[in-house]
Every structure is written in structure tokens, then in C-alpha cells.
């Protein structure tokens, strides 16, 4: 029993990080139809910004905020200056995001150097909690709570605010939304900024747990892509469900079929692609 509880708990907590990363990717794809391969690198650069902030101020929560904001600004600039000019050119947009991956990876080497760094979570989160025979890392619990609160906030934003309904309209059909008086350029910037914010923030959140080093961006990115492919692009519900699935399946897969660690994750994705290309909760294409 404890074994299963531990495995599921671990899976859910990993799903929490995947969710924060995938949600941004999903929003950006859903609204702008951009496959943003820079997203993993945003995650990594966000972590570095968070690290620098933590060193300067000693405040972990401020670090999370600054990591998110810095990447949001970067994302908005990239969207306004580059991606917007390529609207409708799907391939061009993907290729240019790859260009930014390389440039940013190099920038990291120049600015923060090649040495791996770690980041400490506040003391009260670094302990091990215990309920009966079941012990769990507090930090993982914190990640789950954080992701849940973020999901709730996003849900509120999407369903209860005016700007949120514009975003929803844009996910459904950009042209129609434009015709209904939604200011599409503003929505694009907003969505890209929000998605980038989530990526940067999740990078900082993951840092005390995963450490920060070159290469992390492409280690984590596949999980986020699997989540949005399974969940369906642009769907909040899809991102939540699929991220949890990704976390849990990855955990159980590694536990029971360690030789096929990635395969256990990618195979369900392929099956879903074959049966329902739009994902579990995506709009049919």
C-alpha cells in the first residue's frame, strides 16, 4: 500500500511540474498554432534568473516571480518582433524557435557559465513529511499545491474574466474571434507572455529539485510535448489530466519496465495520436 501511495504521489508531483510547463506550451499552440521548441529553454533560463534573484535577495518566492517575469518579457519580445511577422508560416515559426534555442543555450554559457548549480528551497520545504507509515518530501507536496493553485487561477481567468473569454474564443477560432471584436494582437502577446511566464516560473520551481545545468531544457521538453499531445492543444482540462497521466505513467513505467522508460510514455501518446489526433480534450480537427 505504502509502495503504491509513494509511486502515485511521486507521479503526481512530477506531473505538477510537467503541467506548469505544458500549460504554457498548450496555450501558445492553442491560440497561435506555434510549436514552440524554445519552451524548454525558457524553463532553463527562468531557473537561472531565479537563481540570480535568490542569490541577491535570499527570497525564494521572489525568485519564482522574477524568473517568470523575466521570461515573460523575453517571450513577448520574441513574439512581437519575430513570430508575429511569420503568422501563417507554421514551419518558419518552428524553425525560428529552434534558432532561439541555440542562441539562448549559448547565452547561458556566456552569462552563467558551464558549471552546474543547485538552488536551495526554503528550510520549511526541505524536510520530509510523514503520515502514518507514508513519508513524503515536503517540497513535492509544495509543488503539487502550487500547481493546483495555478490551475485554479488559470481556470478562473479563462472562464470568469473578459480577457479570458477572448483567449478562449481565440483558441476556438482566431479569425472568428477577431471578427467578434477581440483584439487579436493583444491576445497573442498576452498568451505568449503568460505561457512564457509559466515556463520561467516552473524552471525556478523545479530548480531545488532537479538542479540547474545545460541540457535540462531538452530533458524536460519531451514530457511537456507528450502532455499536450495527449491532452489536446489549448485545453486547460487536457493539460491537467494529461500531465497527471504523464507523471504517473512515467513513474509506473520506470518502476515496472525500466528498460522501456521512454517507450512506456511515448507509446500511449502514439496510440492516442493514431486514434484521436486532436488529443483527449482537444477540439476535433
Amino acid at each position: 500500500m505504502t509502495f503504491w501511495l509513494t509511486q502515485i504521489f511521486n507521479g503526481v508531483s512530477y506531473g505538477a511540474i510537467v503541467f506548469l510547463l505544458a500549460m504554457g506550451l498548450s496555450l501558445i499552440f492553442g491560440v497561435m498554432k506555434v510549436i514552440n521548441v524554445t519552451h524548454g529553454t525558457y524553463f532553463l533560463v527562468g531557473a537561472y534568473f531565479g537563481l540570480t534573484t535568490l542569490k541577491q535577495t535570499g527570497n525564494f518566492f521572489l525568485a519564482i516571480l522574477i524568473g517568470g517575469i523575466a521570461i515573460a518579457i523575453m517571450g513577448i519580445v520574441i513574439e512581437r518582433v519575430f513570430l508575429r511577422r511569420l503568422q501563417g508560416n507554421d514551419l518558419g515559426q518552428v524553425l525560428i524557435t529552434m534558432g532561439f534555442v541555440l542562441v539562448l543555450q549559448d547565452a547561458i554559457l556566456v552569462i552563467w557559465g558551464p558549471d552546474p548549480v543547485s538552488m536551495d528551497a526554503p528550510k520549511f520545504l526541505a524536510s520530509t513529511g510523514r503520515i502514518g507509515g507514508f513519508s513524503f518530501p515536503m517540497y513535492r507536496l509544495f509543488l503539487i499545491v502550487f500547481a493546483a493553485v495555478t490551475a485554479a487561477a488559470l481556470w478562473f481567468f479563462e472562464s470568469r474574466t473578459k480577457i479570458g473569454s477572448s483567449v478562449r474564443a481565440a483558441v476556438d477560432d482566431v479569425e472568428m474571434a477577431g471578427g467578434m471584436g477581440v483584439n487579436v494582437p493583444v491576445v497573442f502577446s498576452l498568451v505568449f507572455g503568460l505561457g512564457s511566464f509559466l515556463a520561467g516560473m516552473s524552471g525556478v520551481l523545479a530548480a531545488p529539485w532537479l538542479g540547474i545545468q545545460a541540457g535540462l531544457d531538452f530533458e524536460i521538453l519531451p514530457f511537456a510535448f507528450v502532455a499536450i499531445i495527449v491532452g489536446g492543444m489549448g485545453s486547460l482540462k487536457g493539460a491537467v489530466v494529461a500531465s497527471l497521466l504523464v507523471g504517473i505513467i512515467d513513474n509506473l513505467g520506470k518502476t515496472f519496465f525500466p528498460e522501456f522508460a521512454y517507450f512506456t510514455l511515448f507509446l500511449p501518446m502514439a496510440v492516442i495520436l493514431a486514434i484521436r489526433p486532436s488529443g483527449l480534450f482537444g477540439r476535433a480537427m
Binding site: T6, F223, G253, K254, T255
Partner: peptide, 12 residues
């Protein structure tokens, strides 16, 4: 795998 991100399943 060398690029394992989450070691939870192994540790468990």
C-alpha cells in the same frame, strides 16, 4: 537513463 529527471520511481 542518464537524462532521468525524476528519480522518484527508482527511489521508491
Amino acid at each position: 537513463p542518464i537524462n532521468t529527471v525524476d528519480y522518484g520511481p527508482y527511489i521508491g
